[in-house]
């Protein structure tokens, strides 16, 4: 019973918060609602027994992504009111399309419930989430896992290509030169007379 109540509570909060993300006037509020949505989703994961995923969601999405969003929103001077003008122009038609999509999804859901009603059943062997991941991640899914690594690498290359600039006159950290410093190159012995300074 408690599970059912918490499910509906969390689900309701998730949907309501998602709605507020687009409805809120202040963009900072929007991001806050987004964080609330993520939390609710994490709660739903926990209800299903996927605690690892839930914590991952909180750590990655709330801890990193949403906070990044917050930074961006606060740092960029974007006139959200103006942007929403166009949005409101199409609201009628937009609602119609949304309604149709909702209806369609309801139909899918309805058949799921009424026709076969198969549900996800937890695995019989009592292993923890992490152990379950660990069993397959480097075995069955090794290839895909490697490929996913490459996806991240590509994203990294992209970020560097698009943003990194070699500009002159900018102080940069050079790890190699830092480490290969010796006493001779890194230090200069100067006799300073009192009251005169270095030079």
């Amino acid at each position: 019973m408690l599970t059912v109540i918490s499910f509906y509570l969390l689900a309701f909060v998730a949907v309501a918060a998602a709605f507020m993300v687009i409805a809120a006037r202040n963009p900072v509020h929007s991001v806050m609602y987004l964080i609330l949505t993520f939390f609710s989703a994490a709660g739903l994961f926990i209800l299903m027994g996927a605690e690892f995923l839930a914590l991952l969601l909180v750590m990655v999405y709330v801890g990193a992504v949403a906070v990044l969003f917050l930074f961006v929103v606060m740092m960029l001077d974007v006139d959200f009111v103006e942007m929403k003008q166009g949005f409101l122009n199409n609201i009628g038609f937009g609602l119609l399309v949304a309604g149709i999509l909702l209806l369609e999804m309801l139909m899918v859901g309805a058949t799921y419930v009424w026709k076969d009603g198969s549900t996800v059943v937890a695995r019989g062997d009592e292993v923890s989430n992490i152990e379950a991941f660990g069993r397959v991640l480097y075995t069955d899914y090794a290839g895909v896992f490697e490929a996913a690594g490459f996806v991240l690498l590509v994203a990294m290359i992209g970020a560097i290509v698009l943003t990194l600039r070699d500009r002159d006159g900018v102080r940069k950290q050079d790890a190699m030169s830092q480490m290969s410093r010796t006493k001779e190159t890194g230090m200069e012995m100067v006799d300073i007379e009192p009251g005169h300074g270095v030079g």
Binding site: G86, F87, N90, G94, V97, I100, L101, E104
Partner: peptide
């Protein structure tokens, strides 16, 4: 958002 909107309309219509 116009583009995204057109895509969603497309999805809804095709599913229908």
């Amino acid at each position: 958002y116009h583009y995204a909107f057109v895509m969603l309309i497309g999805v809804a219509a095709i599913i229908a």
